[in-house]
Amino acid sequence: MQKMGKSVALALCAWSALALAAPEDDRLLASQCLGCHAADRTGRGGFDRLTGETAAEIAEEMIEMRAKSGAKNIMHLQARGYDDDQIQRIAQWFAVNAGSPVSGRSGDDDEDESEHRAKAKSASGRRVSPTTRR
């Protein structure tokens, strides 16, 4: 009973924190992720595509990345720049606003990318890749 009360209180806290931020605030916060992550069908390049995931899934992944110890990783350090409230707001934003996934699954951006590249016309006009080794 007490446990249940606590989780309701936590949920209310989370809700009120989310409710304080206007959509424009969340949009600004979330937009900064787009420098490294595409969140629609046509966006090119980048790391895991932020499409087709629930807010809980996105938040869980980001919190996991933030906690990750061991080898240094850019996303681990990026996640450490955000508090729980900011992570929830970002996750909520992409869950509502990101497009549907390119393929049936998400999280494996390499596969997403190759399939996507084969279908989509280049947005920025070309793909940037290294020359072959000489």
Partner: peptide, 9 residues
Amino acid sequence: FKWAERLFD
């Protein structure tokens, strides 16, 4: 290259 291509996009 993934990073740069995304930022360009």
